[in-house]
Design a protein around this nucleic acid. Structure first.
Lengths: 195, 195
DNA sequence: GCGGAACTACTTACATGTAGGTAAGTATGA
DNA sequence: TCATACTTACCTACATGTAAGTAGTTCCGC
């Protein structure tokens, strides 16, 4: 009797598992999802996930890496689509608002909140995400404010916007305030002219 | 032979358990601490905690309630200590910066990030915390900007500051940027004059 | 002011569920 | 025939929670 399921390409299960894990974590955090949850979403046994990822940490590592890569592509796409730095910031904000409108948080934002309970490999991946975003924001905000990218003020503004967005994602979902992120960010961006 | 430990007053263990649970959650989140962790901090068995709190959820409920109460007292103390609304906002920011300097997050901020995995009793307690803070900030920001407290702009500013602080707590710890919260907040408060 | 009942605040031992992970076997396609 | 991508069955660790027992404390009638 046939027990194995009709052949999916390996890449399918691997990729789908990564996607499922990412989505589950964005909603529930690292400690809020299990191998079984991922497997159930694909209709396979949890051991099928182990076949592609030795451990939960390796699965999450791969999910974070893919997430960061996709984010980097989004950032590049924004720079390609707009030349005006304010428009670029608005498009950046829309990235966060988009996930939030689907009740998902920033993957690295959730993991950052759980930081102390994560193994070091994951922590440093999350740190890179933040640094990658800060560096991009520094470039764009420097253009928008006509200040030097190295200035402490620009650095601080970049960190502030990132923190505002990460914080707003959490509370937009908690309190069901649909335009919380865009509302706060719009004011924030318009205040830049007084920086 | 004596197995029971030298008598502590009931209130001691109850209060200490609450304190321990709060601190553990601020560092590790709801899913990042166990009854055993709490018990170990007090040098008792985990069943001693069950004696005072039927379930983990009840323990956390009580911890959140105490946290909100303490926060409300802090807010009242700030209003008593300062009349200038900008000073009040600075003192408010210092509340968050103080916890962060001890590597602790806002209890309700962590729980908000874990929201989907929490039982409804806890979710609504966390929501009240946010609303309590927003309402207080609305009052103070209205004074600072000489706008009506009901105006949508003041509402939005209040939400923005709260979100900024919650987000900055997470990243200050993640990236070990000691003055991240105060730095971002100082700029934010000074921008209020252009609101 | 004394013996005992009842209460408080624990203890050890145990039950249960579930998550992560392993071992060994099997269907499918190259 | 071999590798790939699974399957079922199993193991271990540990978290929540329960059962039953015990050491001190308090209260109460006599």
């Amino acid at each position: 009797m046939s027990t194995a399921r009709p052949a999916l390409k390996a890449r399918d299960t691997r990729t789908l598992a990564l996607r499922a894990a990412t989505e589950l974590m964005q909603r529930r955090g690292f400690h809020g999802f299990t191998f079984h949850d991922v497997a159930a979403m694909l209709g396979v046994s949890h051991v099928a996930i182990h076949y592609h990822f030795e451990t939960k940490v390796r699965l999450v590592e791969a999910a974070v890496a893919a997430y960061c890569e996709r984010f980097a592509m989004d950032l590049a796409a924004i720079e390609h689509a707009h030349t005006n730095p304010e428009k670029q910031l608005q498009a950046y904000v829309a990235l966060f608002a988009g996930a939030a409108s689907d009740q998902r948080l920033c993957l690295c934002g959730v993991l950052a909140a759980e930081m102390v309970t994560l193994p070091e490999e994951l922590r440093s991946a999350v740190r890179s995400f933040y640094k990658q975003n800060e560096a991009w924001l520094v470039r764009v905000i420097a253009k928008a404010t006509r200040k030097r990218a190295r200035s402490a003020r620009v650095q601080q503004l970049a960190r502030g916007l990132l923190d505002l967005l990460e914080g707003a994602m959490v509370s937009e979902r908690l309190l069901d305030n649909p335009s919380r992120i865009t509302g706060a960010a719009r004011w924030w961006i318009s205040s830049l002219r007084y920086a």
